[in-house]
Design a protein around this nucleic acid. Structure first.
Lengths: 112, 112
DNA sequence: AGTTATTTTCGATTTTGCAGAACAAATAAA
DNA sequence: TTTATTTGTTCTGCAAAATCGAAAATAACT
């Protein structure tokens, strides 16, 4: 219970990987991250975060066989490990707890 | 809509300030942060974050008159600005949106 | 004036976030 | 069968965020 805190971007990336599932490879992640959060990050940036998350054992990855598209290299597909999920879970839970204690709920985002 | 992303610790601090209200001064924040999240941060760390948030205009602060306790200096009480609230709101909303797209809700923290 | 508790300020360091260029692989086109 | 083009990976490097520890202030009480 040390609280292996996730950086804010790391957290977004973990979420995207969970959402994308078998489609969780860099380009897709980058694209989807932009579509959903309006954030456009360089590929290098994403790779750095991805490998940092991997060395923290929050992500694992495997190569898929190359497809027959123009320039279609084999892609590395990521998935969130159990540790990654619980880190995410913990961060979410803590914030939820705090959020519930904020007086004047007016400003809050409605759950439900 | 630039996405003035909050760091993960910055976000926790903003939340604590909102929760603590008139009691939002460093020592209290530190103490409460530890109580609620199990995280023990050094005072210096907190001050750095607090002033970063202030220069981003997410926090404002005023001095209270010193109380009559032994060693009781006047404390600087913080409060979250409108900009701070919306930054918080935005971060929360984005994550909520993503969270809702994660397949296999089982692992998720229940809202409600 | 000196002691004591509380808060703020000041380096210094590690970890995260992010960009861009160089490199590698695969295929389409010339 | 070379060359161009697209897709993906690695490397280098800097900026911003997270932290610590110690030094300076400040305020009451002796």
């Amino acid at each position: 219970m040390k609280g292996s805190n996730l950086g804010e971007f790391e957290e977004l990336v973990l979420l995207m990987v969970m959402i994308l599932q078998e489609e969780a490879y860099v380009l897709k992640i980058q694209e989807e991250l932009h579509a959903q959060t309006g954030r456009k990050v360089a590929m290098g940036a994403l790779h750095t975060t991805l490998s940092r998350l991997t060395s923290k054992d929050f992500l694992t990855s495997v190569f898929t066989g190359a497809t027959q598209e123009r320039g279609g290299r084999r892609k590395r597909v990521y998935s969130v490990s159990a540790a990654g999920k619980s880190a995410l879970q913990e961060a979410t839970a803590i914030r939820k707890t705090l959020l519930d204690q904020v007086p004047n709920y007016a400003w809050q985002v409605r759950y439900i």
